[in-house]
Design a protein around this nucleic acid. Structure first.
Length: 848
RNA sequence: GCGGGCGUGGCGGAAUCGGUAGACGCAACGGACUUAAAAUCCGUUGGGCGUAAGCCCGUGGGGGUUCAAGUCCCCCCGCCCGCACCA
């Protein structure tokens, strides 16, 4: 009897082996087929969390599987190391953001290494390292030269007490999170990346990403938000000015009852100068946060400016102009016309301010004389009516005719509009990549010469003062202009951290290249990423920005590809029950003891505990389980197996102690198979049994492989369990048993890399599994001679029959009719029809 | 608000194409081994009726298409995620 499986010792042994032999070192080798498996890089927040364990387990299974399939695999890891939390931690703990970040990286790297991931650590990068952001600054300057970067005024959340710019998450119910002051919007001159110049390409190219989840492609499509419509000018009555609106429904112009403009529209500003009430209203609009949720969820409010505009199709018809809090200056022209009958928001607005509601699109089956709009707008297609020259046209034709007329009248033109906005990359913060620009009074914004890169962050900063430390640093920003040599100042904005993570996948390919961001000989071999794995929360922004960066890097000669990730998998989140004590304070799972009846008490005090919902693990709710503890207690293989069992990877998973125990038990059962191989019960040697087992083995190889290919890891685990059950109860041929156990550990190796290596070695193999190949199913063992099919009478199951696979329909029918259960169900009834689907089902339809 | 997703036993889930609903696991219960416990092993386990054979019901709710619906269509309910300065 062998000893109980010693996970810590075995895992340490193999991790050491992999490290010493540089097993996972990837080398550019154009003679071999490559496979780039990438998991999203973590933010070094302190310790790894279960979401990381899940993400990196999934990625590692792919990497190890592809390696066994014979690919030259690149599987790197790094750190998304700039960002707000480091500054917050620094303010709270009086540690420098760099100290905090690098010590977190050290801890988290050790934790990741204990997971047994097949990573090439030689390519590790941290985005906060000057050796990384130096190249990012170079890319920024290249983009600037290529016309992909520009500067314009944009709104930011402004805390008037702390005198600082706030992130959306720092604005809580309209107030600054620290000061509690009402947050204002303030215009700042900021840097933008011209992502909208690729709007159409980013949209069209989604169609080629057939290995992306449909939902992510759909989300991106909606985000880009292409809409066809028209710009239409409404002349201000009695003035030479005009208000240009954008509309997707010019066919409903005859139903217009007002024009609404943004509080930041030039006309609104001009009118507000002479109208204090309007100015106050505009100021109120500007207090709501910059996020769309605030705008859309908040009450729709308007202010009648008293100004009227002339309808483009009828000079005798004028409409009121409102300033409205739901019109965004950034989108379209910052002005809309309202057609209450055919737009819900316009309808709500019209009812609130007693504006006319005139229907101009008649739904099919409705009568023009009686059709009226109540509280629900009609937004569908129909026939135009009450619309002069458009009357009788369908919506599509009416759209075309309306645009044609607008263009004839010189009142506007047909256009395509995208919801996508240019990407504001300026952040008024310290812990980010400095934007390599020098502002000179005489020369304007001057790029930092490449020889002066990197523009490094100063280390001696003060974070206890409000505002941007780069701005109030005594010396850092004061430089001379590279062009005229006169005194000038550095740009003190740093980059949005999404910039850092928009090209790291390319940098990994030539991680140590010093003189340029990427080396063509590396990126041209490794890119694109074959399989990218990460959280669905990045479905829009990160992935869109990275797609843009690939295009921009192509335009500036760094890459040859458009699409960085040809395969994408988005995993679900890790959830856990949450707990609160009597005072409403959150409790950690280990502080709670569960009673048999399901109720919970505090483990130490015995006081009652409220068991809350199962929700995404988060530090704020304390419903977290530390992966480090789990790995110490059960080993990495158990943690990995838990992550792969039961739940499909794209869905949310609930962490449970019982589930971990179950995974741990399976590890024990695998280990005990060694005893079984060592002491085979060979005497009852039956050829039939051996054949049946071998058929099962090879069926499992085929199905398991298919499941891995399709990311159905939970099903693959279930099949491995079924095979384990079969091997445990198998009595007979020793060779077949050995074949089964060896196949099982080869299949499970990408999931459970440590124990499978150990079993493989104990079975007497000198070459480790990691150098081995993937099992192949023997086609001869996959064919089955008989099949079991269901027999239904009127759609209800009455019997099953087992018959030869190629049995003719006639024979299947006869066998079905001969079944006792079938006869009973058919008693006294006449056969109407018999449906025979070979290998599947027989359905006998009877009367009565 | 807009956009996206999900809903199947006590629980996580399985069901490749519309064709045997509940694979596999967890939990629970019963048993074996043990002085005992742990570990391990064996068995039972969707609900209802029935001594049994068997029958009926059942995939969030309602309707529809079909010989046949968890799967397709329409309506409704509930939950979750994203919304551009969190990453």
């Amino acid at each position: 009897m062998s000893e109980r499986y010693n996970a810590p010792a075995t895992e340490a042994k193999w991790q050491q082996y992999w490290q010493q032999n540089q097993t996972f070192k990837a080398v550019t080798d154009t003679s071999r087929p490559k496979y780039y498996a990438l998991s999203m890089l973590p933010y070094p927040s302190g310790r790894i969390h279960m979401g990381h364990v899940r993400n990196y387990t999934l990625g590692d299974v792919v990497a190890r599987y592809k390696r066994a399939m014979g690919f030259n695999v690149l599987h790197p890891m790094g750190w998304d190391a700039f960002g707000l939390p480091a500054e917050n931690a620094a303010r709270g703990n009086k540690t420098h953001p760099a100290t905090w970040t690098y010590s977190n990286i050290k801890v988290m790297k050790a934790e990741l290494q204990s997971m047994g991931l097949s990573l090439d650590w030689d390519r590790e990068l941290a985005t906060c390292d000057a050796s990384y952001y130096k190249h990012q600054q170079k890319l920024f300057l290249d983009f600037l030269k290529a016309g992909l970067v520009y500067r314009k005024e944009a709104w930011a959340n402004w805390d008037p007490v702390d005198n600082t710019v706030l992130a959306n998450e720092q604005v809580i119910e309209g107030r600054g999170w620290r000061s509690g002051a009402l947050v204002e919007k303030r215009l700042l001159s900021q840097w933008f990346l011209n992502i909208t110049s690729y709007s159409e390409d980013l949209l069209q190219s989604l169609k080629t990403l057939d290995r992306w989840p449909d939902k992510v492609r759909l989300m991106q499509e909606n985000w880009i938000g292409k809409s066809e419509g028209a710009y239409v000018n409404f002349a201000v009555a009695g003035k030479s000015e005009k208000v240009e609106v954008f509309t997707t429904r010019p066919d409903t112009l005859f139903g217009a009852s007002f024009v609404a403009i943004s509080a930041n529209h030039p006309l609104a500003k001009k009118l507000a100068e002479k109208d204090e009430t309007l100015a106050a209203f505009c100021a109120e609009c500007n207090r709501t946060g910059t996020s769309i949720v605030d705008i859309e969820k908040g009450e729709k409010k308007g202010f009648d400016t008293g100004t009227r505009v002339v309808h483009p199709f009828d000079s005798s018809w004028t409409l009121p102009v409102f300033v409205a809090n739901f019109v965004l200056v950034e989108y379209g022209t910052g002005a809309i016309f309202g057609c209450p009958a055919h737009d819900q928001r316009d309808l709500d607005f019209a009812r609130k301010y007693n504006l006319p509601v005139k229907a101009v699109v008649l739904p099919e089956g409705e009568n023009a004389a009686t059709f009226a709009v109540g509280d629900v707008a009609y937004t569908g297609d129909g026939k135009a009516f009450n619309s002069q020259f458009l009357d009788g046209l369908g919506t599509v034709e009416a759209l075309k005719a309306a645009i044609k007329k607008i263009e004839e009248l010189g009142a506007g033109k047909g256009t395509v509009q995208y919801r996508l906005r240019d990407w504001c990359v300026s952040r008024q913060r310290y812990w980010g990549c400095p934007i390599p620009i020098i502002h000179c009074e005489h020369c304007g914004a001057v790029p930092v010469p490449e020889k002066d890169l990197p523009v490094a962050l100063p280390e001696d900063i003060t974070l206890d003062k409000a505002g941007n430390p780069l701005d109030h640093h005594p010396t850092w920003k004061h430089v001379t202009c590279p062009q005229c040599g006169k005194p000038a100042v550095r740009e003190t904005d740093t980059c949005d951290t999404f910039v850092d993570s928009s090209w790291y996948y390319a940098r990994y390919c030539s991680a140590t290249c010093e003189d340029k961001p990427v080396d063509p000989k590396d990126v041209d071999y490794w890119l694109p990423v074959d399989q990218y794995v990460g959280g669905v929360e990045h479905a829009i922004l990160h992935l869109l920005y990275a797609r843009f960066f690939a295009r921009a890097m192509k335009a500036t000669g760094h890459l040859k590809i458009d699409e960085p990730f040809v395969g994408l998998f988005t995993q679900g989140m890790v959830c856990h029950e949450s707990y609160k004590d009597e005072t409403g304070a959150w409790l950690y799972p280990e502080e709670v003891k569960r009673n048999p009846d399901g109720s919970g008490v505090h483990a130490q005090t015995g006081r009652p505990v409220t068991i809350g919902r199962i929700e995404v693990m988060s530090k704020s709710k304390k419903n977290v389980v530390d992966p480090g503890k789990i790995i110490k207690l059960y080993g990495a293989d158990t943690a990995r197996l838990f992550m792969l069992s039961d739940s499909p990877p794209e869905r949310d998973i609930e962490w449970s102690e019982a589930g971990v125990e179950g995974s741990w038990r399976f590890i024990g059962r695998l280990w005990r198979l060694l005893d079984k191989v060592a002491a085979p019960t060979n005497e009852k040697d039956s050829a039939d049994k051996a054949l049946a087992l071998r058929q099962m083995i090879h069926r499992t190889i085929a199905d398991f492989t298919g499941d891995i290919e399709r990311f159905h890891f939970n099903r693959a685990v279930a099949r491995a369990r079924e095979m384990t059950n079969a091997l445990e109860s198998f009595e007979g041929d020793a060779a077949a048993l050995r074949e089964g156990v060896e196949t099982l550990v080869r299949l499970l190796n990408p999931m459970l890399p440590h124990i499978t290596e150990e079993i493989w070695q104990q079975l007497g193999h000198a070459t480790p599994l990691v150098q081995g190949t993937w099992p192949k199913a023997d086609p001869a063992l996959l064919v089955e001679s008989t099949t079991t099919i269901a027999v239904q009478v009127n759609g209800k199951l009455r019997a099953t029959i087992t018959i030869p696979k190629e049995a003719p329909p006639k024979a299947i029918e006869e066998a079905a009719l001969a079944e006792a259960g079938v006869k009973r169900a058919m008693e006294g009834k006449a056969v109407k029809k018999i449906i025979v689907v070979p290998n599947k089902i027989v359905n006998i339809v009877v009367t009565g």
